[in-house]
């Protein structure tokens, strides 16, 4: 398995990746509290972006409603903790199952009924919106008044109930991000990974080569949904409050997918690079505006939108592919050497 993980990866890339990991592990000792919260946010988006990337980047199925799965994971774990004091780790399998099931139902209906492309994307938005309004009216989970997870005691880190300091949350999300990267790497090099990419590139051709495209698209949706709901559990216990209006809204879904799209769709490092860029940019803007003394709500977002526009127009494949070339990490394109 380890051989599969590192095969094909240029040595320099491996070294850079390990250096980055070392820096991230050491970061809480070096940075202040504010930067730590920024790093947590970056890793959260890197993890969630990786999860979304399975569906769109690997299998080519555009979901614009992934906030749905974040919300389902968040609400499942938070509600069970709130009502029964259940540890999120115990709720985890249920949260994954709920999200996976909802993803499966949506996939089953969409793929069986031939809903594809733009229509599929809009279906995912519609289901997320449906959930948003539904949760707004579901009093057991607090409805529109919100669900509050009993607040953490910052002096004591309790990994079992996920109550603790930002530093603990930082290491949890770092571990998740690393895990997601490894899982995605293994997936991409597996039968499923090859089949997903084939479906993404040309579904008819994939079928002609013996790929059961329906089944593999379902795998992608269910896996992506389940992985995303894990991000939701983190979200719920990190922020301690959940409002349907904030959790399920389309803005959240878009936030999740900016990273992988800006970073480089379908690549493994893209979601991570994208998360650093997008969140870093947003926070840097925020700081810069504060320094200059502009405190207009919306000003940051306008600039953010402009940056997004420029990146999308200038780098159609995202930042990572050209960056990879710049770092001299491109996979070899010729020669018969068996990798």
């Amino acid at each position: 398995m380890i051989a599969t993980l590192v095969a094909d990866v240029p040595r320099r890339g491996l070294v850079l990746l390990l250096l980055l990991l070392a820096a991230l592990v050491a970061a809480p000792l070096l940075v202040n509290d504010y930067l730590l919260t920024v790093l947590i946010l970056i890793l959260y988006f890197a993890y969630a972006g990786q999860a979304w990337n399975i569906m769109m980047g690997f299998a080519g199925q555009l979901s614009l409603g992934h906030a749905l799965y974040v919300g389902l994971g968040a609400y499942t774990a938070a509600a069970l903790f709130f009502h029964f004091g259940l540890s999120p780790w115990i709720s985890l399998p249920l949260a994954l199952a709920v999200s996976g099931l909802v993803g499966a139902i949506m996939g089953l209906l969409a793929f069986r009924f031939g809903v594809a492309g733009v229509y599929f994307a809009i279906l995912t938005i519609a289901v997320a919106e449906f959930a948003r309004i539904g949760f707004d009216h579901w009093s057991w989970v607090g409805g529109s008044a919100g669900l509050f997870v009993p607040v953490a005691n910052y002096t004591q880190n309790d990994l079992w109930t996920l109550r603790g300091s930002p530093r603990m949350f930082y290491y949890v999300i770092l571990a998740l991000t690393v895990l997601a990267l490894l899982v995605c790497r293994l997936l991409l090099k597996s039968r499923a990974g090859y089949y997903w990419q084939a479906i993404r590139e040309d579904e008819d051709a994939a079928r002609a080569l013996g790929v059961n495209t329906f089944r593999y698209k379902m795998y992608a949706v269910v896996l992506s949904a389940a992985m995303t709901s894990l991000a939701g559990i983190f979200f719920a216990f990190y922020y301690n409050n959940l409002f349907p209006e904030q959790v399920f809204t389309i803005g959240r879904s878009i936030e999740l997918i900016l990273g992988p799209i800006i970073g480089g769709l379908g690549t493994l490092i893209g979601p991570i690079v994208g998360a650093f860029l997008i969140t870093g940019l947003a926070e840097a803007l925020h700081e810069a505006m504060l320094r200059i003394g502009i405190d207009v709500p919306g000003a940051k977002q306008v600039f953010y939108g402009v940056c997004l526009l420029v990146v999308v127009m200038a780098l159609p494949h995202g930042v990572w592919p050209p960056l990879r070339r710049l770092l001299g990490l491109d996979p070899k394109t010729s020669g018969k050497g068996k990798a």
Binding site: L62, Q301, V302, Y304, G305, V312, P316
Partner: peptide, 24 residues
């Protein structure tokens, strides 16, 4: 001639700009 998701990102960027200009 770009893929759908690319066009989508473009218009999302336009939407973000428009909403926030209105807010300002």
């Amino acid at each position: 001639n770009r893929p759908e998701h690319s066009q989508f990102m473009l218009l999302v960027a336009v939407a973000i700009i428009l909403v926030n200009i209105q807010l300002i």
